[in-house]
Simulated scan of single mutants.
Amino acid sequence: MINPRVLPRSKLRGLSLLNVSLVAVVLAIAVTAYLLFFRSDSEAAGTTRPSVAVARGDVTASVTSSGTLQSGQTASPQFATPGTVTTILVKVGQVVAKGAAIATIDPAAAERDVRIAEQNQIAAASELRR
Rank of each mutant, 00 (worst) to 15 (best):
F79E: 00
E127A: 15
S51W: 04
I122L: 09
G83H: 01
Q70P: 01
V25Y: 10
S42A: 09
E111T: 13
Q78K: 12
S51Y: 06
A103L: 02
T87N: 10
T84R: 14
V52Q: 05
V25S: 14
F79M: 00
T64G: 07
S21V: 11
F37Q: 15
V54S: 07
E111W: 07
D58H: 10
A108T: 08
A55M: 05
L7S: 11
P8K: 07
V59W: 09
S40D: 15
R13T: 08
D41L: 04
S71G: 11
N19R: 13
S42F: 02
A55Y: 04
A109V: 14
L17E: 12
L89I: 08
S51M: 07
A109G: 12
A97K: 11
V52P: 00
R5V: 11
A80V: 03
A108Q: 05
I29N: 10
G67N: 00
I88N: 03
R112C: 04
D58F: 12
F79A: 07
T81R: 08
A30C: 03
P8H: 06
G46M: 02
A97L: 05
V59H: 08
T74W: 10
F38M: 05
Y34M: 08
V23E: 14
A101T: 10
N120M: 03
R112Q: 15
A33G: 15
R130P: 06
I102C: 00
V31Q: 02
A80K: 06
L7D: 09
I88M: 03
M1I: 10
S40E: 10
I116Y: 02
D58R: 12
I102V: 13
G99W: 00
Q94G: 03
E43A: 13
I88Q: 01
F38H: 03
N19Y: 14
G99F: 01
R9M: 10
S66H: 03
P77V: 10
K11N: 10
Q70N: 13
P50C: 01
I102R: 01
A124Q: 04
A45L: 05
F38S: 03
V31K: 03
P107F: 01
T74P: 02
G14L: 10
R130A: 12
A101I: 08
F37L: 15
T87K: 08
Q78G: 03
Y34C: 06
T81W: 06
A30F: 06
F37Y: 15
S62M: 09
S62T: 14
E118K: 12
T87Q: 07
R112E: 14
A123D: 15
N3V: 01
P77F: 07
S66F: 02
G93I: 01
D58W: 11
E43R: 12
V114M: 11
Y34V: 06
S66V: 04
A125K: 08
V52G: 02
V31S: 05
D58P: 02
P77W: 04
I116V: 10
P77L: 11
